[in-house]
Structures are given as structure tokens and as C-alpha cells.
Simulated scan of single mutants.
Amino acid sequence: MANSDLAAIEAVLHTYFDGLHEGDTEKLAASFHACSHLYSAEDGGLLDQPRATWFDRVRNRPAPSKAGLARHDQILFIDQSGPDTAIAKVACAIPPRFFTDYLSLLKTAEGWKIVSKIFRTEMREG
């Protein structure tokens, strides 16, 4: 992995963390491609959420930063399989919800973008 790619991918992930903590959909939009979707297992089924639906939810909930919630952001690993494909595993939280995210990234004409997010939620004390 080229150092410039690693730095660019890390920057996208940190913008994602900031957008999530601040409830800032402009920062999230800078990280997530317009066609991106979020996926999780829910009650034995699959939840498939387009980016726009997720952004509506973010806009309509209190921002974790304004609620004084601590950040729990961590990049667990980044694996780049080619010049334009990568996956990252990250941890983040909106206590008491703690998330493990698997983020698929593609290098587009606009730079690295998250194109899909598969996530797991765990409820616990923060």
C-alpha cells in the first residue's frame, strides 16, 4: 500500500468519525459515496439502508458531541488489495451503542470513498 493511499484512506475514516460524532452529514457525505449503503443483521433479517435514509436519521438525532458523549474511534485495520480497492475495520460509538464497522472503499475520481458499511451494534456502558 502506498503511503499516500494509506494517508488518504485514514483521512476518509477520520472524517467519517468526525461526522458521526458531530452529527455532520456534510462530513459524512465527504466520506461516503452517493450510492453507498449500510447493512446490518436485524432480527434474523438484513437491514439495507441507503445513504440518504441514514443521513435523515443522523439529522434527526442529537449529535453525540452536543450530548457530551465520549469518543471511542479506532481504526482496527486497513487492507488495500489494489490501487483502487480497500477495506477497513473500525470501532466507534454513540454510547451506549458501540459499533464495529467493516467499510469497503473505492478510489474514485473524487478520491477514496466508502461505498458500503456493514456494521454490528453492541449495547454497553460507555
Rank of each mutant, 00 (worst) to 15 (best):
L38G: 03
L38W: 01
Y39Q: 00
Y39W: 07
Y39S: 01
Y39P: 00
S40V: 02
S40C: 10
S40W: 00
S40F: 01
A41N: 12
E42G: 07
D43P: 00
D43E: 07
D43V: 02
D43I: 00
G44C: 00
G44A: 01
G44Q: 02
G45D: 08
G45E: 07
G45I: 03
L46N: 06
L46E: 04
L46H: 06
L46R: 07
L47S: 09
D48G: 06
D48S: 11
P50L: 05
P50H: 03
P50G: 04
R51T: 02
R51I: 03
A52I: 11
A52H: 13
A52E: 15
T53Q: 07
T53R: 04
W54V: 05
W54C: 01
F55M: 03
F55T: 00
D56P: 03
D56R: 07
D56V: 03
R57M: 07
V58F: 00
V58M: 01
R59N: 10
R59S: 05
N60C: 08
N60W: 04
N60R: 10
R61S: 12
R61P: 04
P62L: 05
A63I: 02
A63L: 05
A63Q: 04
A63C: 04
P64K: 01
P64C: 01
P64Q: 00
S65T: 08
S65G: 04
S65I: 09
K66R: 15
G68M: 06
G68S: 08
G68W: 09
G68L: 10
G68C: 08
G68P: 07
G68I: 09
L69W: 06
A70V: 12
A70K: 14
R71C: 14
R71H: 13
R71A: 13
R71P: 11
R71S: 15
H72E: 13
H72Y: 14
H72S: 14
H72R: 13
D73Q: 12
D73K: 10
D73I: 12
Q74S: 12
I75Q: 03
I75R: 02
L76K: 14
L76V: 15
L76S: 14
L76W: 10
F77L: 13
I78Y: 10
Q80C: 12
Q80R: 14
S81E: 12
S81M: 13
